[in-house]
Simulated scan of single mutants.
Amino acid sequence: MINTVGVVGLGTMGAGIAEVFAKAGLTVIGVEAVEAAAEAGRARLDKSLDRQLAKGRLDQATRDDIAARLTVTTDLSALAAANLVIEAVPELIDIKRDLFTRLDEICPQETILATNTSSLSVTTIAETTKRASRVVGMHFFNPAPIMKLVEVVETVHSDDTVVSEIADLAKRVGKTPVVIGDRPGFIANRLLFGYLNHAIRLLAEGRASRDEIDGAMKSVGFPMGPLMLLDVIGLDTSVEVLDSIHSNDGASPRHDAAPLLRQLVADGSLGRKTGHGFYDHTQPVAAAELSEERAAEIVAELLPPHIAEAREMAASGYASEADIDTAMTLGCGYPKGPFAFDL
């Protein structure tokens, strides 16, 4: 049974994953590359717990118990004590492959190794080890303590019992797992970023304004318009995800990053984190006003191709309709899954 988890990389995502496991009663060993990063990771964890204490979501004893289960170090060899190690390092294949080669040498053969990659090939990462059957994807969504979805990614090498154990672990820590194969973008990012990229092209071609596009999608229940969501994700991150999916599946023109997106990134307009992207985040954002007829026109442009891609995914046998709907509602905040829209 998994009772000790290692987390490599304690940025926003890694710290969130570490918190999820510690809250569920598991012992967590967090590892960062250098001392300054380790101190920042520990501070990030403590700040999150203190915020929850201040809001009454944790009492002092529970907060202290969780903190006591979290160890932070720069010593990768400490992960020899873990039953599971999950990485949350930068989304670059060479960095992840190098890390898994090192983990394979450090960790006992029974230790499961998992990657939190959102779009890279789990198979390519697994093949750097001598335990490819014990390597899986365990893709959490940001912020990890709040978002309920975990995509559990199996490769052609994965042992079925390992996949089941990781799916069961996701349930143990309060998440909803969907088990899927190793395909570029998995479920959520593949569908989400095709839709977001389409919205950019609609804007660039002058067929709808920014405010019309975002207002239209909010009018059918989406919590955020696609262009605002891109700004929140980060335009540079969005290019990276699109390029990763497109380079591994060149037959997918929906994931060929729109020129306008690349232009904004080249200009340093990366979205909310830089203050400018599709929106000026230094100024209040006013809600758009548009007629029901105009909103319906834009929704009719954006939503049917998005749903068609979901249907193709289900028809290929990659994921069930239920899992696709679960992924998009829990992972992307959709008001309902693609198959629940009456189109």
Results as ranks from 00 to 15, higher is better:
Ser252Cys: 09
Val20Phe: 02
Leu235Phe: 15
Ile233Thr: 07
Lys23Gln: 15
Asp243Val: 09
Val163Trp: 03
Val20Leu: 01
Val156Met: 02
Asn197Gly: 03
Val299Ile: 13
Leu45Ile: 12
Glu321Phe: 05
Ala266His: 11
Ser133Tyr: 11
Leu203Ala: 09
Asp267Phe: 02
Ala340Gln: 14
Ile233Phe: 09
His157Ile: 01
Arg131His: 07
Pro145Thr: 00
Ala61Thr: 13
Arg190Ser: 03
Thr176Ser: 13
Asp168Ala: 15
Gly41Tyr: 05
Lys171Asp: 11
Lys96Ala: 09
Ile112Cys: 04
His198Asn: 10
Thr176Ile: 14
Asp231Phe: 03
Leu196Val: 08
Phe341Ser: 03
Lys47Tyr: 01
Asp249Arg: 11
Val8Tyr: 06
Val173Ser: 01
Glu110Leu: 12
Gln60Ala: 15
Thr27Asn: 09
Ser269Met: 13
Arg97Pro: 10
Arg254Cys: 08
Asp65Asn: 13
Val20Gln: 07
Ala300Phe: 10
Thr326Asp: 00
His198Arg: 13
Arg44Glu: 04
Ala54Lys: 15
Phe222Ala: 01
Ala286His: 15
Ser48Val: 12
Ile125Val: 10
Gly30Leu: 03
Phe278Lys: 01
Arg102Asn: 11
Ala24Pro: 12
Ala126Thr: 01
Leu10Lys: 00
Glu87Ser: 08
Ile17His: 06
Leu261Arg: 04
Thr237Tyr: 02
Ala286Gly: 13
Leu53His: 00
Ala204Asp: 11
Leu330Trp: 08
Ala54Glu: 14
Leu202Arg: 07
Ala258Cys: 10
Val241Arg: 06
Arg294Gln: 13
Ser320Tyr: 15
Thr282Leu: 13
Leu26Asn: 06
Arg97Ala: 05
Leu261Lys: 04
Arg42Ile: 03
Arg63Phe: 03
Met328Ile: 12
Asn142Pro: 07
Thr4Leu: 02
Ile17Asn: 05
Ala80Leu: 07
Leu196Trp: 06
Ala36Ser: 14
Gly271Val: 00
Pro177Ser: 06
Pro284Cys: 07
Arg42Ala: 09
Ser158Gln: 00
Lys55Ser: 04
Asp243Lys: 09
Tyr334Phe: 14
Thr129Asn: 07
Asn3Asp: 15
Gly271Leu: 02
Ala314Asp: 08
